[in-house]
Amino acid sequence: MQTTATVGRPRTVSWVLTARPTSDGDDVNLYRTIGDSSLRELDPFLLLDEFRSEEATESLPGFPDHPHRGFETVTYLLAGRVRHADNKGHQGVLEAGGVQWMTAGRGIVHSEMLEQQDGRIRGFQLWLNLPAKDKMVPPRYQEFAPEAIPQITGPNGEHIRVIAGRVGAVEGPVRGIATDPLYLDIALPPHSRFVQPVPVGHTAFVYIFEGQAEIGAAAEAPGEPRGERQLAVLGDGDSVTLVTGETPARLLLVAARPLDEPVVRYGPFVMNTQLEIWEAVQDYHTGKF
């Protein structure tokens, strides 16, 4: 693992926004950053939602049957369960600490129903665009139980879960994604510093969901602490530096290769032209998904 590094061009924060409360599906309360009116998209990222409930209830809302075409959905669960099923016969349960990386491709209809454990559910859903050449590929899943996600503990007590990409010699289990993503869950103790290489040219962001951290900070130029439910869009460079003070932090560090292609969206369909959107709507309504 790389907690210190010699870097040529460290990334700095270009823009910070705070997640806005919203709802989706069957009245699921969410905190949204990417995909909101303040940040419609961040090529290739289309949406980032945090869902969280710590009030025990017998009936928890979820996401009943709905379609997707033209992009990928990534569900990362911290607490509770997500029970999913689709119109291709695939079904299962995502447990706390697990990841589901679904490539919707040419079309799928699925449901994601939330279940609390010990009165809690918490997690994230990220949408990544697919390149034009892959938008009509057959749907597929990459699903990983909690124990399949590599975990690294550093010399200063930092803890990293590697979902996609690499931290040093450790590689996450997600493979074969067109945008070559990095997806890390990083927990930092107080008074720590962590440096992670990120490919030059890749779009990158940090989303803090616990505590505070300085992003892009250096010893000679401390950064401004960022807090819970804040997303920091990073400028270009070859690494990201994260620093904590008195307060620990837990955050997502995510990066991927931008596609630089036209994006036309209509709800759960993301294509390159308006004609392709019309075709997606027609295919869905005529049962071709």
Results as ranks from 00 to 15, higher is better:
residue 3 T to A: 11
residue 4 T to Y: 06
residue 6 T to D: 04
residue 6 T to E: 09
residue 15 W to L: 15
residue 25 G to S: 11
residue 26 D to N: 14
residue 29 N to I: 15
residue 34 I to H: 03
residue 34 I to R: 04
residue 35 G to H: 00
residue 39 L to D: 05
residue 41 E to K: 10
residue 43 D to H: 02
residue 48 L to P: 01
residue 53 S to G: 11
residue 53 S to N: 12
residue 58 E to F: 13
residue 60 L to W: 04
residue 64 P to E: 14
residue 72 E to I: 01
residue 74 V to Y: 06
residue 74 V to R: 08
residue 88 K to N: 13
residue 92 G to H: 14
residue 92 G to V: 13
residue 96 A to M: 02
residue 103 T to V: 12
residue 103 T to F: 05
residue 108 I to H: 05
residue 108 I to N: 04
residue 109 V to A: 15
residue 110 H to D: 14
residue 111 S to P: 00
residue 112 E to Q: 08
residue 113 M to T: 14
residue 113 M to C: 06
residue 114 L to I: 13
residue 118 D to S: 01
residue 119 G to N: 02
residue 120 R to F: 02
residue 122 R to P: 00
residue 127 W to H: 07
residue 134 D to A: 15
residue 139 P to K: 06
residue 139 P to R: 08
residue 141 Y to Q: 01
residue 142 Q to G: 09
residue 142 Q to K: 03
residue 146 P to T: 00
residue 148 A to C: 09
residue 149 I to Q: 07
residue 150 P to N: 02
residue 153 T to D: 09
residue 158 E to D: 10
residue 163 I to L: 13
residue 169 A to W: 06
residue 173 P to L: 08
residue 176 G to T: 02
residue 177 I to P: 05
residue 178 A to I: 03
residue 180 D to T: 10
residue 180 D to S: 11
residue 186 I to P: 07
residue 186 I to Y: 02
residue 188 L to H: 06
residue 193 R to T: 03
residue 197 P to R: 12
residue 198 V to G: 08
residue 205 F to R: 04
residue 205 F to K: 10
residue 210 E to D: 09
residue 212 Q to F: 13
residue 213 A to Y: 04
residue 214 E to C: 02
residue 215 I to Y: 06
residue 216 G to Q: 01
residue 221 A to N: 13
residue 224 E to S: 14
residue 232 A to D: 10
residue 236 D to F: 06
residue 240 V to D: 07
residue 240 V to F: 11
residue 241 T to A: 10
residue 249 A to I: 08
residue 249 A to T: 07
residue 251 L to A: 03
residue 258 P to L: 02
residue 267 G to Y: 14
residue 268 P to V: 01
residue 269 F to S: 04
residue 278 W to V: 13
residue 280 A to Q: 08
residue 280 A to N: 08
residue 280 A to F: 14
residue 285 H to W: 09
residue 287 G to Y: 07
residue 288 K to N: 08
